[in-house]
Structure formats: C-alpha cells, structure tokens
Amino acid sequence: MSEKILVVEDEIELLDFYDKMLTAEDYTVYKSETGKKAIDIFDKEDPKIIIMDIKLPDISGIEVTRYIKEKSPDAIIIAVSAYGEKFKEAVNAGAYTLVQKPFLQKELISLIKDLTQSSETIKDEAIDVSFTKKKVPSSLTRVAFDAVITNMGEGSLRILLKKTNLDRYIGNLPPHDDSPSITVDEYIILIQNIFDIFGQKGANAILYICGKEGFKNSLKNNPALFGVAGVALKFMPDEKKKKFILEKVLKKLEEIFGNVHILEEDQSYFYIKLPECPYCKGQKSDSPICYTPIGFYEEVIKWATGKSEKVEQIQCIAMGHENCVFKILK
C-alpha cells in the first residue's frame, strides 16, 4: 500500500502541484485548503506525513500541527512557509522539519523519501570528494549541527545525519573542543546534503552561522594562538592587524582541511584564494555559495579590529571559476 500524505495548502494552484508531484511518486495524496478540513481528513485517514502550510485562512497551520501531534505523536509534519520567522514556532508546535518557499521539487521529494525510509535504507548517491582523510575538529562539526537545529529544528538534523551516514551522532552530538570528529570528506558531503535538503536559501543561513560560531569556538579552543596574537595586535593599525591575523588563521585552516589558502593584496583589498574549496565542492550555482568562510572571516576581522565588516565572495568554483576568492577591505 502506498504511503498516505496529507497536504494542507490554501493556494489551489500549489495544492494541485503537490498532488501531481506526489501522485507521480506513488504516494496517496489527501488535499485540504483549510485547517478545519485538514483536521477532519487527519482524523479519518491517519496519514503518516503531513505537508503543512503555516498560513491558512481559518486555523493557523501551527494550531493544526499542535492538534495532530497531540492526537498522533508519531506523525511527521513538514512545515512550509514563505515567512522564516514562523519556523521556530512551528518546531515548538511539533513540526519535524521545515521548508521555506520557494523550494525545488526535487528537494521536497528527497526530503519526503528520507522521512519515509529507515536509516538503513538511506544511501548517499555517488559523490566525488577525494579531498582528504584528515579529521575536522569536533567544535566545527558541532557548530554545523547546532546551526541546523537553530534554523530548522532537531528533526531536520536527524534527517541530515541519516542522509550523510552520520547516524552515530543522533542523540550524541560531538563536544565543543578540538578532538577529532568526522573526516574532511564527510564534512564536504555534509555541506552538500545541507544544500540538497534545505535548498540554497536555507543552506546559506545555516552555513553562515557555522562560520561565525566556528571562529568563536576556535578562540576558546586555541588560547595560546589567539592570546599571543591579541598581544601582538594591540598597537598595530587596522590594515596590519588584518594581515597578521589572516596569515595565522589561514595557516590553521590549511592544517585542518589540507587545502591551500592563498592571501594576496592590492592597494585597497586583501584577497583569500582557495584553488580547492571544501565548502562548494560538487555544487553548481549561479551565485557564490561559500557562506561558511564568509561568516568565519567576518568574525576574524571583528575580533582583530573590534569593527564589524562585510566579507564579499567575488569568485566561486560552483559558478565555474578557477578559484573561490573572498575580498576584504584593508
């Protein structure tokens, strides 16, 4: 018997789109344009998966989510909305994971399949990584997991861990320290799956937080390195502060990821060049997508100078460029 899915969406065209898309994947689809009708269908049909628009004309999707989870704690609810600020409220009400409009059809189908498969049946597609078997510090892995929880909820992290074959971390998150955790190859696949599951918009927010929190953890875990650097920076002008700390940080990143980090400069800017980039490897995009290093470098500059400055990615391998390049004002 095919899996039952209840779709709750007040936009008729989008509701019909869901119906065709899911029926083509051999799901049994029940449709509702209102919260009240959704409750009636749920009580009668008891579907396992519910796709829930948060904004409905009568009862809010959050209220319907709360009702369904009280009746059936095992029901899996995917909250859908164009309004990102409602996501945490939906998670608190019982939504398992979150999808922000607009989304790609393949992303939603992939998510539903992951939710209806056991962890044993979830297999990665062949992904070319071949980067390095070096181990990423636990703190960097942990901030990635925490960023998913913060933005998308714990259910989303479980989906991500299963898809990435990192089930060992479900209910057992790595510590905030420099002990070894996943390999760089696994870290690359983790980032690829963040894009696959949450789409570029959702992934960008998650990965940007990863970068910012990653540097904050590095400060705590490397007191000797940053303590000495802090003393040396005290009497330097901002331009020299930036160059000094960037050289030290890029050397540390090379040790962690095993790829070359090149620091260049002209009269106005510093440029960080990555001929190999773990943050966008295997991806294709029309715009830059390496938000983890952007967040990381912004926190580096803020720590060194006490000023918040934007870091811009001006080239990205995912766009077909030869290198990933980041621009920082001197």
Rank of each mutant, 00 (worst) to 15 (best):
T65A: 07
G214K: 05
D40W: 08
P275A: 12
S118V: 03
A203E: 09
K327E: 11
A229W: 03
D114P: 00
V80S: 05
I77D: 01
G230V: 10
L98C: 12
L253Q: 05
E254W: 06
G202V: 06
P174D: 06
D128F: 14
K240L: 15
K37I: 10
A93R: 02
T97H: 00
V143A: 06
A79Q: 02
Y83P: 00
I182D: 06
I256L: 11
A90D: 06
A232V: 13
K162M: 06
V91S: 02
S287H: 13
T150W: 07
I191P: 04
P275V: 12
D10R: 09
D58A: 00
L207V: 01
K69F: 02
G202F: 06
P174I: 05
E25A: 14
E13C: 06
E154K: 15
S72I: 05
G214I: 03
K123N: 10
Y27I: 12
L6S: 00
E265K: 14
K133V: 12
G84F: 03
R142G: 01
A318S: 08
K101Y: 09
C277Y: 11
N323W: 12
L263D: 10
F42E: 06
L263A: 09
Q315R: 10
L14R: 14
I328K: 10
C210M: 15
A75N: 02
T34P: 04
L161N: 12
G35I: 03
E13D: 08
L98I: 15
G94R: 11
G202Y: 06
K4I: 00
Y67G: 00
D40Q: 15
I77H: 01
I191M: 05
V249F: 07
V300R: 07
E33D: 10
E239D: 12
F87H: 04
A147D: 08
D266F: 02
K37G: 09
S181M: 07
S72H: 07
E85I: 12
I314G: 04
S72Y: 06
I62T: 12
F270N: 04
N193V: 03
E213K: 15
K251L: 14
E186Y: 02
D177K: 01
S119W: 13
K69C: 08
E85S: 14
S308F: 15
I159D: 07
Q192S: 02
L233Y: 00
V64L: 01
I189N: 14
G295R: 15
L160T: 00
K163N: 04
K69M: 09
P137W: 09
T23N: 06
K133M: 12
G258L: 13
L14K: 13
